[in-house]
Design a protein around this nucleic acid. Sequence first.
DNA 1: ACGCCTTACTGGTATAGACAACTATTCCAC
DNA 2: GTGGAATAGTTGTCTATACCAGTAAGGCGT
Lengths: 240, 240
Amino acid sequence: MINKNSPVPIYHQLEEYIKQQIENGILMEETVIPSEREYAQTFQISRMTVRQAINNLVSEGYLKRQKGRGTFVNKKKVEQELQGMTSFTEDMLSRGMSPSSTLLSFQIIPADKKTAFDLKIEENESVYKIKRIRLADGAPMALETAYIPVEIVPGLTEENSNLSLYQYIEEILSLSITEATQEIEASIASSNDAEALEINIGDPILLIERISYLQNGIPFELVKSTFRADRYRFIHSMKR
Amino acid sequence: MINKNSPVPIYHQLEEYIKQQIENGILMEETVIPSEREYAQTFQISRMTVRQAINNLVSEGYLKRQKGRGTFVNKKKVEQELQGMTSFTEDMLSRGMSPSSTLLSFQIIPADKKTAFDLKIEENESVYKIKRIRLADGAPMALETAYIPVEIVPGLTEENSNLSLYQYIEEILSLSITEATQEIEASIASSNDAEALEINIGDPILLIERISYLQNGIPFELVKSTFRADRYRFIHSMKR
DNA sequence: ACGCCTTACTGGTATAGACAACTATTCCAC
DNA sequence: GTGGAATAGTTGTCTATACCAGTAAGGCGT
């Protein structure tokens, strides 16, 4: 398991080893792992080296220490999923609801000033404008309008836009979304919103505007969503 | 500078010392700091202890190491502030507004069921209940109620609760907030909200409920805020 | 049954020393 | 001048050891 002659540092080998054990379920969530002194003895390495490995895993969130008790395997972070949450689909699934959607319109239009600014493109450059009603367990949850530069994702059609766009991006184009900014505000349903979401005019709604970025920092999607406040709250956790 | 007989660990003293030097501009951005051996000799402590201090500062983003060259002061980070944003004060400052607040009430009460659950304490355990109106540039922005277990932060009084609680936690108790969860929803102002925020009944408001955790995962504060939707939007950026 | 001490574990802090890997500089041979 | 070796500095890895501080459990006296 541990090779002292490897160019890979021992502490790093031990890190990988422990991570493996966690992923394989040999070290279970919320249970103690062997003590530092135990690792030191079984692998015939110094306790300080063990500590270096464990420290790294602690700061990566895999483990947590408790003085006098031991070191424990952290619960899997659903949180990290949430933190990296991108699509309505993932969001609903993580809440145990069944997502679906109805396409209202699919257009290619020239970007207006604000959209162009958000997507860092030139005014009047072509963007897809995709309007959907998002359903959870069959009931309307949100009204969503997405803007995507045609240049970045050419070949999107009314049909394949139905697939998860994120899957398409990651798997077909092998790009990935690494960053997003969101702005959230409260408002009140207009007649338009009310009709689509099957609520009354004046009911509270949650407006979320999200811009997602690719690895290179290029924005590729602007999504404006209007959520029914009675059915949706935005959940968000953060770590330092 | 370094007191070996202090109950505060040496590495932590050194951390604070170096942070001070950075903040005071004695250690400039992008320049090398003294070598590990140099610190060890000038303070008559072990090099490994110096490393422990420097490692912490590296993982907090203050410093960066370069093998064979030295350790350098990082450029200040603006983003990290946003991501780790915790208090109303910091939030407003980062938006270029001037925060202030009016204390409405300061009580010690037994925790009700839900509060106890959120703060992971027993029902009826004592908690501070601190109610404030939060102002930005002198105008009401939010109505805020904070719940803090007395056991964790004993000795909080009506007077010192006015100081930044976070500073108090970090500097006096030398604990730090490493994690928080937030739930955000839209609603409509009740007569109570309307009066405090100087808006009309039925106007949209943004409800934010935040639970902050200390490094050991212990929840230490539950804050329920009601923001004027016309003056506040929640902004949030995330990276993978 | 209830406290209290002891004991044996845990992680936390700190030391001193060794060698490896990397960087920058100096100096010398060509 | 240019290339390369020697040198002195840096951080990186690792060991062995010591004592401190918190936790849990068992045993003991009351």
